[in-house]
């Protein structure tokens, strides 16, 4: 692999790691943060019949998880095209 090709790949990999890091940060905050560590504090806030910390622990974190994966899919598909490492159609 040429020097340029290798640097190009490193840039791609770096961006990938940045995305993963950010998304896992959100993943950590909504579940371990809101649902476990800060649950009592958040429970002081009420939305309808839900205490907010309880809601994050039993509902909210799961919704966020689903959104996170689809955001990742979108970001990575764009990144793959930008760096021209996406799969070409003839491979299907």
């Amino acid at each position: 692999m040429s020097q340029i090709g290798s640097r190009y790949r490193q840039a791609y990999w770096k961006r990938n790691l940045t995305y993963v890091g950010l998304l896992l940060g959100v993943w950590f905050v909504v579940s371990y943060g809101f649902g476990i560590l800060l649950v009592e504090q958040l429970n002081a806030i009420r939305i309808g019949g839900f205490q907010l910390g309880f809601w994050f622990a039993q509902q909210g974190s799961i919704y966020v998880f689903v959104v996170l994966i689809f955001v990742y899919v979108k970001l990575m598909n764009r990144l793959d095209r930008e760096f021209e490492v996406d799969e070409r159609d003839e491979t299907s």
């Binding site: 993963v20 998304l23 896992l24 993943w27 579940s31 649902g35 476990i36 649950v39 309880f54 622990a57 039993q58 974190s61 799961i62 998880f65 996170l68 994966i69 990742y72 899919v73």
Partner: peptide, 25 residues
């Protein structure tokens, strides 16, 4: 969960949050 109350969240978050790890890592 009905008998554990809020502590049952460990299963809810644990068995769904793993998919984020799967998809990303």
């Amino acid at each position: 969960i009905a008998f554990m109350g809020r502590d049952g969240s460990v299963y809810l978050m644990g068995w769904t949050g793993g998919y984020v790890l799967l998809a990303l890592l």
